[in-house]
Design a protein around this nucleic acid. Structure first.
Lengths: 255, 255
DNA sequence: TCTTATTTGTTCGTATGTATT
DNA sequence: GAATACATACGAACAAATAAG
């Protein structure tokens, strides 16, 4: 192919160099003007090549500073195991599942509770939880980090008729987390569904996850049903696609 | 807010117009030179704006012809139900699951068997199926369409020690498809795992799915285990992220 | 605090290439 | 072959963010 564009060729070259390890993770890439001269192309062409690598999550350009090699490897989210009881109760905290996922890779997990309290849930959440236009839900919004790098955003909703006045409205939900409290409240969770989509991040997600508008995120709409088949909890997870893989497992004919 | 770039603003404007329905699905968008004049920007800026919408899967630029509004809505892949027996045996064909997914939206499903026969499986497949470097697997590679629009690529592998000399090596695997044959061969499937990743398409996938290099695809690594816990089948699905959502469902503590 | 140099982000005008009609 | 349409590239310039003095 004579006609692979220059910016793609340059992107390929630089990608190979990064993967090969010529630039260690976290280090600074050669500046755009220098690359332009080295490879005999114009600066906009270099910029376009770097935009590709940026969208792939391989580098992080920062205006005024330079372009840096992204450091975090890919993490795996095990959708099924993470909701099993042993995993949740591992260290007496609700964040057991995320902790394991991150620690397994040698990083230090951290969660911040950003918001907790009664709210009117967004349309799709309200619909899933069978909430009317007036009904209120408990929101629990968390920011999650791996070694201080933001990696995930999770927002949970529980109908206020269930959660109101319980420990679910407190910062620390106690051993086993939300699902253990729901069980104590007469709503033991029996079944989950998840819907996975890929989309561009919202401005808020861009900001927290340090993404550009061209990068993509997984949006996971997680719904829990109790033994009576009543939907009792929704969590919306947002994860950069270049940072995560999703694992699922199930028996045939689960019925 | 003074500084949202022109190409992003234009992309926002055009996206809104398309979503609003100003341009019907399949219709041709105003040409780049005309848009440049209408909005008082240069042609490269228009081109950059359209690149965004192209990556989002909203439009399809075709060199020499024009830019067209993409027509297919989003399809849902129900990972759990699609492997349940009733779904598979619905019309006596192995492609029952995909058929249902597509027909449900009012489109006409079609599958083409591209390749079938013994091959040396790729590394990750061989590892999952516990195949040695010399071992051979049956490959079944399909192209899938919805109303003649390519929407999915699926490649299955079964160890040749299981599949060799059976109906699995024929074009038509018979009622109930691969899993029914595996059951008859003494390998009834008991459990599935799937690993979902998002990546840029390979050149072959670009070509078949009509994608650009910047667009993204789901890559689903699907693995089936028989009752003895032996891995008996791998299917790698490739789906454009803008065309599909993935649904999962499972009971708590599936043991 | 102010200034200046450096670095990335964006835009234009212009030109050329390639594919389609 | 000619006209049209999208794809790519260059050089120049300015904007915005950062760092260093």
């Amino acid at each position: 192919m004579t006609s692979r564009s220059q910016y793609r060729q340059l992107a390929d070259t630089l990608r190979a160099a990064i993967v090969r390890g010529d630039y260690p993770p976290g280090s600074q890439l050669t500046s755009e003007p220098e690359l332009a001269e080295q490879y005999g192309v114009s600066r906009p062409t270099v910029n376009r090549a770097l935009a590709i690598l940026s969208n792939e999550g391989l580098v992080r350009p920062e205006r005024g500073r330079g372009t840096f090699i992204h450091e975090l490897p890919v993490m795996a989210r095990a959708a099924v195991q993470r909701y099993a009881r042993p995993e949740r109760e591992a260290d007496g905290q609700a964040r057991g599942a995320f902790d394991g996922e991150v620690r397994r890779l040698g990083f230090e997990p951290r969660s911040e509770l950003i918001e907790v309290g009664p709210v009117v849930a967004p349309g799709d959440v309200a619909e899933a939880l069978h909430l009317g236009a007036e009904d209120v839900a408990l929101i629990r919004k968390r920011h999650m980090y791996a070694s201080d790098v933001p990696v995930q955003l999770a927002t949970s909703y529980v109908p206020w008729t269930i959660a109101g006045g319980t420990r679910l409205t407190e910062a620390d939900t106690g051993p086993g987390g939300t699902y253990s409290r729901l069980a104590e409240l007469g709503h033991p969770v029996a079944r989950f569904t998840e819907r996975v989509t890929v989309r561009t991040p919202s401005p808020e997600e861009e900001d927290f996850l340090r993404l550009t508008e061209e990068q993509k995120v997984f949006s996971i709409f997680h719904l829990a049903f109790d033994q009576d088949g009543r939907p009792v909890e929704v969590t919306v997870h947002t994860l950069p696609t270049h940072q995560w893989v999703l694992d699922y497992a199930w028996p045939i004919d689960p019925s």
